[in-house]
């Protein structure tokens, strides 16, 4: 779509593959036993792909996310990012959390929030932040505080923060679940645009089948707890995707039906 900037080229060439090998994770249960959340989960993502992880609530999607990003430690198995097994939080990862109200620091402006954690001299960090906020369309609000802007704008700021880090793997934890339907449509397309521009590998967790099919190259369907990748769907729809056209394609409906059936919802 647009001219590739050097930073975008960097992101694309360094975009790692993400590979999960036989992950297992359990938590001590309330009765003293252990609750097995993840049991033998494996998948591979090619660099630059947009992959959705689809599963019912409570399946363990968030736990999986935390294990992949290094916020939690797996009991066994490996997370391999860009060819290297990760230990703790990998520098190339960024996360966009579901609860945007607790994602941005209320004592910092949007600009400062996006600058948070950047290991750069102050002036460079500010420039990076401004560029990122411009890309998500919030350049007029850089001096505002998170509680002064809408929920959708807060989420866009969180995305800008991920972009500013120039991460090659961006993980999204149901980012649009708490956003109203109209805003969600805009955000989905906005996200696809950014992904096309920046070329990062996207791991998108959601419980919304339509969203998963619309956005992704592949959809991984999780089994209920203890979870693993039960089925996989390759979405062969043309890009760029369009809310009206793509969604009315017969293929879209077919993928959707397949996913629902795999989830055990449809008949």
């Amino acid at each position: 779509m647009s001219v590739t900037t050097p930073e975008q080229a960097k992101m694309r060439s360094e975009a790692p593959g993400l590979e999960c090998v036989d992950l297992r994770k359990s938590f001590p249960g309330p009765d003293g036993g252990a609750a097995q959340i993840i049991d033998g989960l494996s998948f591979v993502i090619q660099p630059g792909q947009f992959v959705s992880v689809l599963g019912p609530s409570g399946a363990g999607k968030t736990t999986l996310l935390r294990c992949i990003t290094g916020l939690d430690v797996v009991d066994s198995g490996e997370v391999i990012l860009g060819g290297r097994a990760t230990k703790g939080v990998a520098p190339e990862t960024a996360v966009v959390f579901q609860d945007y109200s607790k994602s941005l620091f209320p004592w910092l402006t949007l600009e400062r929030n996006v600058m948070f954690g950047l290991r750069l001299p102050r002036a460079q960090a500010r420039e990076r932040a401004r560029e990122a906020l411009e890309r998500v369309g919030l350049i007029d609000f850089i001096g505002h505080y998170p509680w002064q802007v809408s929920g959708g704008m807060q989420q866009r700021t969180a995305i800008a923060r991920a972009l500013a880090r120039q991460s090659s793997l961006v993980v999204f934890d149901e980012p649009f679940a708490a956003v109203d339907a109209l805003t969600r449509i805009q955000q989905e397309d906005g996200l696809l645009g950014l992904w096309a521009e920046f070329g990062f590998t996207a791991l998108f967790v959601t419980h919304d089948v339509d969203e998963a099919v619309y956005l992704s190259d592949r959809v991984l369907i999780l089994a209920p707890r203890p979870t693993y990748v039960a089925k996989e769907l390759v979405i062969d729809l043309p890009r760029p995707r369009d809310q009206v056209e793509t969604r009315s394609l017969p293929e879209f409906q077919r993928y959707r039906a397949e996913a629902l059936e795999m989830l055990g919802v449809a008949h």
Binding site: T69, G70, L71, V89, P91, T93, A94, V95, F97, D99, K102, S103, F105, W107, F116, G117, R165
Partner: peptide
């Protein structure tokens, strides 16, 4: 807790997190 997650994902050192996140919060 999610503030702390944000700081961990950004790989901010523990001591720095104390003063830039925990204290303001």
């Amino acid at each position: 807790p999610q503030y702390l997650d944000v700081a961990r994902v950004a790989r901010v050192a523990r001591l720095r997190t104390m003063f830039t996140v925990k204290l303001p919060a």
